[in-house]
Design a binder for these strands. Structure first.
Length: 302
DNA sequence: ATCAGAGCGGGTGTAGGTTC
DNA sequence: GAACCTACACCCGCTCTGAT
C-alpha cells in the first residue's frame, strides 16, 4: 500500500515531467507538505479508499478555519484535486472525493490605483536620491532604480518583464523597446525623455563598470556576479523603499494599473479590445475585468 | 566585541493571468 | 466563466560590512 507521502512525491515528479513552471512545483510542494502533516495529525499515513473521503472532508474544514481568503483555499483545493485525480489515474484510489475539493465562490476585490500625484511622487523618490547622493556606486544605483520605476510607471511593465530587459531589445531608430513576457512579446514606444534617461544610464554604467561593456542585461546589481541581471526581488525592494518615503503602499502592480488607468476610460469597452496587447494580456476579457475593478474603486472613493 | 543596517534568498499566503 | 497555473508581495532570518 502507498503512503500519502510517497504518492505525493511521485505526483510532484509527474508534474515536473509535464513541464510545469518551477514556481508552481514549489507551491504544490508546500500544499502537499501541509496536507501530509494534517494526515499525520489524524493518524493517517496510507492512501486508501476507506479513509480518503473523511480525511479530505476534514481537511476542507481545516483549511476553511485556518485561512480567510478564499483564493488561498481554492488554490490548495486545486492542487489537492489534481493530486487525487492523479492517484485515481494510477489506480491507487478507486474514487476521488470530488465534492470536498470543489472551489468556494470567488469574491471580487477592488484594486487600488494611485492618483497622478502619488504616481509622480513615487517616481521622484529615486530621482531625488540620485540628485543628492555623492558616493559613486550608490548614485549609480539610484539612477538605475529611478529608470526602472519610471519605466514601470510609463509602460505599465510587470517585474518579470523588467528583469528580462536587454540593451539589444531597444530599437533606437524607432524609439521602441521590445518587451518579453513569459510566453509572448510586444513592442512599446518610449518617450523621448525616457530614451535619453536610458542612454544616460547606459553611459554611466559603462563608465562605472568598464568591464561590463559586453553585459547584455540592462539592469545589473552591484553585488551580483558580474553581468548578471537583478531579480524581481530587487524590484520589490525598490518599491518598498519608495513606499517608506512617500508613506503609501507602492507596488509594481499598482504603478502598472495607474499607468493603464488613463487609457481605460470608464465606458469605453471598445478601446479595451484594441489595447489589451499593449499591456501584455493574452485576451481582452482580462483587461475588461480589471477596468471594472479599477473604476468601481474610484466611484466609491470619489 | 557588539550592534545596526543593507542586501539577499528561502518560505508561503495572495493575487494575477492563462487555459480549457 | 470555471478551473488551473504562475507571479507578486511580504515576512523572516542569514551574512556581510562598517560604525561605535
Amino acid at each position: 500500500m502507498q503512503t500519502i507521502q510517497q504518492a505525493w512525491d511521485i505526483y510532484i515528479l509527474h508534474i515536473a515531467k509535464m513541464g510545469r513552471a518551477p514556481l508552481t512545483i514549489k507551491q504544490y510542494k508546500i500544499d502537499g507538505k501541509q496536507f501530509i502533516r494534517f494526515c499525520w495529525d489524524a493518524n493517517e499515513e496510507y492512501l486508501q479508499d476507506e479513509t480518503i473521503g473523511t480525511l479530505v472532508e476534514a481537511y476542507r474544514e481545516h483549511l476553511q478555519e485556518r485561512y480567510t481568503n478564499t483564493q488561498s483555499i481554492n488554490r490548495k483545493f486545486a492542487s489537492l484535486r489534481s493530486f487525487l485525480q492523479y492517484c485515481h489515474f494510477r489506480e491507487w484510489l478507486r474514487v476521488v472525493p470530488e465534492q470536498y475539493v470543489k472551489p468556494l465562490p470567488r469574491i471580487e476585490k477592488h484594486v487600488d490605483v494611485l492618483t497622478d500625484k502619488e504616481r509622480e511622487q513615487a517616481v521622484n523618490v529615486w530621482l531625488h536620491a540620485y540628485q543628492t547622493i555623492d558616493e559613486k556606486a550608490h548614485r549609480w544605483m539610484a539612477l538605475r532604480n529611478f529608470c526602472i520605476t519610471r519605466l514601470v510607471a510609463e509602460l505599465a511593465l510587470k517585474p518579470y518583464e523588467v528583469v528580462k530587459m536587454k540593451w539589444s531589445h531597444i530599437d533606437e531608430a524607432k524609439g521602441t523597446v521590445r518587451i518579453f513576457g513569459s510566453r509572448s512579446h510586444r513592442d512599446l514606444e518610449l518617450s523621448t525623455s525616457m530614451q535619453s534617461w536610458l542612454m544616460f544610464y547606459e553611459k554611466q554604467t559603462h563608465e562605472l563598470f568598464p568591464a561590463l561593456l559586453e553585459a547584455e542585461h540592462m539592469w545589473l546589481g552591484l553585488s551580483n556576479k558580474a553581468g548578471e541581471p537583478i531579480t524581481v526581488k530587487t524590484i520589490e525592494r525598490i518599491m518598498l523603499h519608495i513606499s517608506k518615503v512617500v508613506d503609501k503602499k507602492i507596488t509594481c502592480t499598482n504603478l502598472r494599473y495607474s499607468a493603464m488607468r488613463d487609457e481605460l476610460i470608464e465606458q469605453d469597452r471598445q478601446r479595451v479590445k484594441q489595447i489589451y496587447e499593449k499591456y501584455g494580456y493574452v485576451q481582452h476579457s482580462v483587461m475588461e475585468e480589471r477596468r471594472k475593478r479599477i473604476f468601481n474603486l474610484r466611484q466609491r472613493s470619489n
